[in-house]
């Protein structure tokens, strides 16, 4: 885990050099296309997976996707795409 001071320092670094924060701070990057697709980069794995709910582990918490007919369209080591009728995406940190 990244310490608090370290995190602050990294954030300042990212601001100073205008670097993408998700890389410097090792954070997930979530792209939602309408309510049809949810594309998550830099995840840590699937915690729970049903057709109504997909819980994905990310650095420091999890991202929960609610919806209907959810399908994992594609999955690789650090990216995942969830298709379906998405109604809610929320974070739990």
């Amino acid at each position: 885990m990244v310490g608090k001071g370290d995190k602050k320092w990294r954030q300042n670094l990212a601001d100073l050099f205008e670097l993408p924060r998700e890389i410097v701070l090792n954070l997930p990057r979530l792209t939602v296309i309408g309510n049809l697709q949810c594309y998550l980069e830099n995840h840590r794995g699937v915690i729970q997976y049903t057709t109504e709910k997909v819980r994905l582990a990310v650095n420091g918490g999890e991202i929960i996707i609610h919806g209907e007919n959810l399908v994992i369209r594609y999955m690789a080591n650090d990216e995942i795409a969830v298709d379906g009728n998405i109604s809610k995406v929320h974070y739990e940190f």
């Binding site: 997976y49 049903t50 057709t51 959810l70 399908v71 994992i72 369209r73 594609y74 999955m75």
Partner: peptide, 26 residues
């Protein structure tokens, strides 16, 4: 433990796609 199975596969770099959840099975 299908989630665990999926995560393990992912860690090993095995590409999986079009995962659909049925009743009791994926």
């Amino acid at each position: 433990a299908t989630e665990k199975f999926i995560n393990l596969a992912m860690r090993q770099g095995i590409p999986l796609w079009d995962l659909a959840r049925g009743s009791e099975k994926a």
